[in-house]
């Protein structure tokens, strides 16, 4: 039974990847761009979920790492002659370093107090980026970032984004399923008991924060590839809360929840804003409904519904 499910899952996975791979052949340019954006935000939300859903950490201002990753890549590309791939990695590394520095300060606190110190540190970083005209371009941001020919075309950036996102999702999945991931979930469920059985709680959380920051930075660098711009709003707290919303809508106790949530939010924003300037109104109302009726998100809701059916089958089989 179990083996059957896992082969089935692999089959579904391959099919989904194949569909994503073939999409640019059928879809107009705009939709390819849109799906690239969904992948970027999906990766960002998934990276937040490493600490939020699996670690139980209130990382209120996750977008700082997204923004810093994007800015680092953009600055390396515009101000130095470093090869693209190194600039790309520099974004993720810069985000991871920042995450480490912030983590050292914040990790000793828990829950809401962690979140509040983190959001104030993040706001500090935002303020610096926002005002440092000579270096970051201030509130104008940086536009027309030179990305190599091969990945700057629509399809090129799509395939690059798809490949990087898939690799990152695979790595995150492996991390979650590793002993480290189990320890992290143990800490989420009961930090005191986890400490008692010999898990170094603070160090595990710090490592998790750095990992989340790293993948957040990758998402930021990917945004540079897709959009060729960076702007300080990428580090503003409203975007952080939006990413939170993505995790919530998709379901933060499911691995693919944040991905689904990101796709829904991006789709909603794009299509509703095509019809009306009051898209935030629609968006807000959808959010209120999700919070009222689907507190575990859409995937969480589906899983809950699927579970009893599976158990029924098991019982029938004896």
């Amino acid at each position: 039974m179990r083996k059957g499910t896992s082969t089935r899952n692999i089959g579904i996975g391959i099919a989904v990847v194949a569909v994503f791979f073939l999409l640019p052949a059928f879809l107009p340019r705009f939709y390819v761009y849109l799906i690239s954006l969904m992948l970027v935000y999906g990766l960002l939300a998934t990276s937040l979920n490493i600490v939020l859903g699996y670690g139980g950490v209130f990382q209120f201002h996750h977008c700082v790492f997204y923004g810093v990753g994007a800015y680092a890549t953009a600055l390396f590309l515009t101000k130095t002659g470093v090869p693209f791939i190194l600039s790309f990695l520099a974004g993720a590394v810069a985000a991871a370093v920042l995450s480490f520095l912030m983590g050292i300060i914040t990790v000793r606190l828990s829950k809401l107090y962690f979140g509040m110190l983190q959001i104030s540190l993040g706001s500090l970083v935002w303020a610096i980026v926002y005002r440092w005209y000579s270096f970051t371009g201030g509130d104008d941001g940086i536009h027309g970032i030179p990305v190599p020919e091969i990945i700057s075309s629509y399809n090129g950036s799509y395939y690059f984004t798809l490949a990087v996102t898939l690799i990152c999702l695979f790595l995150i999945y492996k991390i979650i399923k590793s002993p480290f991931g189990s320890a992290l979930q143990g800490i989420r469920d009961n930090p005191v008991r986890s400490g008692m059985i010999g898990i170094n709680v603070k160090r595990h959380l710090l490592v998790a924060l750095v990992i989340a920051g790293f993948f957040g930075g990758v998402a930021g660098s990917l945004f540079v590839v897709v959009d060729k711009t960076v702007f300080p709003d990428m580090l503003f707290w409203t975007l952080s809360l939006e990413v939170f919303i993505m995790c919530l809508i998709g379901g933060w106790f499911s691995f693919f929840g944040p991905m689904v949530g990101a796709a829904i939010v991006i789709a909603l924003r794009t299509f509703v804003s095509g019809y009306t300037v009051y898209w935030a109104l629609v968006y807000g109302i959808v959010m209120v409904f999700v919070i009222f009726f689907l507190p575990n998100g859409i995937l969480g809701f589906l899983e809950q519904r699927a579970k009893p059916a599976d158990e029924k089958k098991l019982i029938e089989k004896g």
């Binding site: 809360l241 939170f244 919303i245 919530l248 935030a280 109104l281 968006y283 807000g284 109302i285 959010m287 209120v288 919070i291």
Partner: peptide, 11 residues
Amino acid sequence: LLLLTFALSLI
């Protein structure tokens, strides 16, 4: 509650 009030602020 935080997310709900954020939704309300958008509305």
